[in-house]
Amino acid sequence: MSAAGALLDVRGLTVRFGGLVALDGVDVAVAEGETVGVIGPNGSGKTTLFNALTGLYAPAGGEIVFRGRRLAGLEAHAIARLGIARTFQASRLCLDLSVFDNILIGMHAGRRTGLVDFVVRRRRFLGEIRAALERASHLLALFNRDLPSRGFERVGQLPQIDRRRVEICRALAAAPTLLLLDEPSAGMNPEETAELMRDLRIVREEMPGLSVVIIEHDMFVIEGVSQRVVAFNYGRKIAEGSFAAVAAHGEVRAAYLGTEAVGA
């Protein structure tokens, strides 16, 4: 696809940790409304890509252009405010806080009332909180109609699948234009994974303009939700295209099955 009209355009991205090259001149583009799957063995640079995109790592080379803007030098919170939201492979929810509190943190950048409103303009403050809770309830209900009623419970009390939903809601709460999902099916059984795929389709239907990049080990998830697949190995992009094409790619098969299996 042409990179010119892309929402996200990553060119020649290189990330180094000391002598280790975690990402080596990677090009990835994502169009508006597109879902791109990212696959590759452990340590192939998938999460490093997310960490560089969200400003956690400073790239050693290349550039990231998001909505026509170069992200170099921006701090993580500034990048988040431009419209990139993410989830983490191991859930990074605040388990001690309530479901609503977690989602409110996702809305952080959008909150307008400050300390002054809290003290003297209570109506304004409460109005914002009410609107935020309504939005949070709406997002939760998309995935599970019972979740809004558990909004004041601690996240730690929810089952795994609902925690993942809260994490996705927290990311969506910021009203992002690009959603990065880092292995959402990690730690899930097949039934939960099937529910997750249904959830991701709901996201697609409810937010057709949202672009999604999803890292997954589960090939059913990748096949089921992505329109295009990018495969990584040793920090390099080794294949790109439809799921079928990438899955059939020799280097991808070698990376997953071992070179002997393919070379034999």
Partner: peptide
């Protein structure tokens, strides 16, 4: 306090 990195990625200015 819970997770500075995740907080930043939610748009919190550290």
């Amino acid at each position: 306090a819970q997770d500075p990195e995740a907080a930043q990625m939610m748009g919190v200015n550290l």
